[in-house]
């Protein structure tokens, strides 16, 4: 199978280029396996990967124009030749490795941690199964970055718009019956950029390898804001 892979090493290259590789496809081969095979052929090729089973979120790349996880994408589902590029809109460090710092800063900005103000009980804080169900589809985020780096609003304002990943997490805590910081969380999201740059383009939903729905979460935050402002 033919692959064209984005190559750029600032130590030696003046400009990026696409390099061609041939990979023999084996049964059950994932895109990550193919990239590992390419690294076998050429040790100077760099990409991030780790768990190989879609939970660590290291190996998000852009293949044939779509963001996806290498380790859960069967190569047979990709049209040949496969064009593999780094996630869009992020500064490239080397080859498929991009600088994700702004993405992580946006995550930190939404206070992605449980804030419980009442005195803590000796045992667990009780939560009904129904309340716990509200966290399904939110807490499973693996922070791979597929969503935010496919979002045109995030491309345009990565410093001001939180982006779908961070906003999904903002809702994960707003939706948690144990969290007691609703007011301050909503206040923090005020303004024209942080939340409201979402124009429901829904690239995030399409690109999420865990089938999560940040657009829906953003809608829920807006609904809650409206309720609180009345």
């Amino acid at each position: 199978m033919k692959f064209f892979v984005y190559r750029y090493n600032p130590d030696v290259d003046t400009a990026p280029h696409m390099q061609e590789y041939d990979v023999e496809v084996t049964r059950g081969m994932m895109l990550r396996d193919a990239l590992m095979e390419i690294k076998r052929q050429d040790e100077s090729f760099a990409f991030r990967h780790s768990c190989g089973e879609g939970v660590c979120g290291s190996d998000a790349v852009n293949a044939n124009g779509k963001n996806m996880l290498g380790c859960t994408t069967p190569v047979v589902e990709l049209k040949e030749p496969v064009n593999v590029r780094p996630l869009p809109g992020r500064p490239v460090i080397r080859d498929l490795v991009v600088d994700m710092s702004q993405f992580y800063q946006q995550y930190r900005a939404v206070k992605p941690y449980l804030i419980h103000k009442d005195p803590l009980p000796e045992q667990e804080i009780l939560q009904s199964p129904e309340d716990r169900d509200k966290l399904d589809g939110l807490y499973e985020c693996i922070m791979c970055g597929c969503c935010s780096t496919s979002c045109p609003s995030f491309w345009w304002n990565p410093d001001k718009f939180h982006g779908p990943q961070a906003l999904l997490q903002a809702w994960r805590f707003l939706a948690d019956s144990r969290d007691q910081a609703t007011e301050e969380r909503l206040d923090d999201l005020e303004g024209p950029y942080k939340l409201f740059r979402c124009h429901t383009i829904m690239n995030c939903v399409e690109s999420c390898p865990k089938s999560l729905n940040p657009t829906k979460a953003i809608g829920k935050i807006k609904e809650l804001m409206l309720k609180h402002s009345i």
């Binding site: 449980l114 667990e124 939560q127 199964p129 309340d131 716990r132």
Partner: peptide, 9 residues
């Protein structure tokens, strides 16, 4: 749990 782990219930 107090730190926020979303345990099943």
């Amino acid at each position: 749990e107090h730190n926020g782990v979303p345990f099943s219930r």
